[in-house]
Simulated assay, not measured.
Amino acid sequence: MDQALMPTQIEIASPRLRLVALDPRLAALQVDDRQAFFDALEVEPEPSWPPELTDETAMRRLRETLDAHPEQTGWRAWVFISPVMHRLLGSGGFMGAPDAEGVVEIGYSMLTSWREQGLATEAVNTLLQWAYSHDTVKQVVARTPDDRDAAHRVLEKAGFVQAGHEGDVIAWTHERSRLAA
């Protein structure tokens, strides 16, 4: 791939997290050379990587998508890193760039040992701020199984409201006006 077409690495930070958007290079390393992936992120090797809800198929699909569309860096996967411990804590991001109505869908997953500490909420709030920094984004949506109370609490704390049920999945919405200060 032409290096001139490669986006620059996107990083954002919150009080306890460093979030890095996976670009084509990082997405490929995550699949092909896990140690090089950790080295590129300057984190300790994480034996339990990736978090729940991310499997080999999803990682390969991400690599293929970013290879074909490097401009979607930031609108796909992000990793959540502790800048103090240099450890991967979880991942999340968007299902793609905003649609014609300005809607993006968000998702997230924490490694088991980093749950129940407010880190997922912090990551979601940071991703919301990044998304809304783009004028084209008008609304962020999420979907969670109706039996995932912890996931519901994360979304509620981040200002999402339930928008209805789709079978055993709860649909959530977040408007720009609800962005946490």
Rank of each mutant, 00 (worst) to 15 (best):
L41Q: 01
T136M: 14
Q117I: 01
L29Y: 01
P51D: 07
D55C: 10
T54I: 15
E44L: 14
H134Q: 13
R63E: 05
F38G: 15
Q129F: 03
M95V: 01
Q129A: 14
T112M: 10
D33I: 13
L22C: 06
G102E: 05
S113M: 07
V154Q: 11
K138E: 14
V141I: 14
A27Y: 02
V137L: 04
V141D: 07
D149H: 11
P47T: 08
R76N: 02
Q117E: 07
L41P: 00
Q30E: 14
A36Q: 14
L119Q: 02
V79D: 00
P98M: 10
V31G: 13
A27E: 02
G96R: 07
T126Y: 00
A97L: 05
D149S: 12
I81E: 05
A21D: 02
A150H: 06
G107K: 07
T54M: 15
L127M: 13
L29A: 09
I81D: 02
A151P: 09
T54A: 10
D147I: 06
S14W: 01
G102M: 03
S48M: 12
D55V: 12
M59K: 09
V103I: 15
G74R: 03
E42K: 14
G118L: 07
M95Y: 05
L119C: 14
P50I: 03
P98K: 10
I81G: 02
P50G: 04
L22F: 01
M95S: 05
G118Q: 07
L26C: 00
V79K: 03
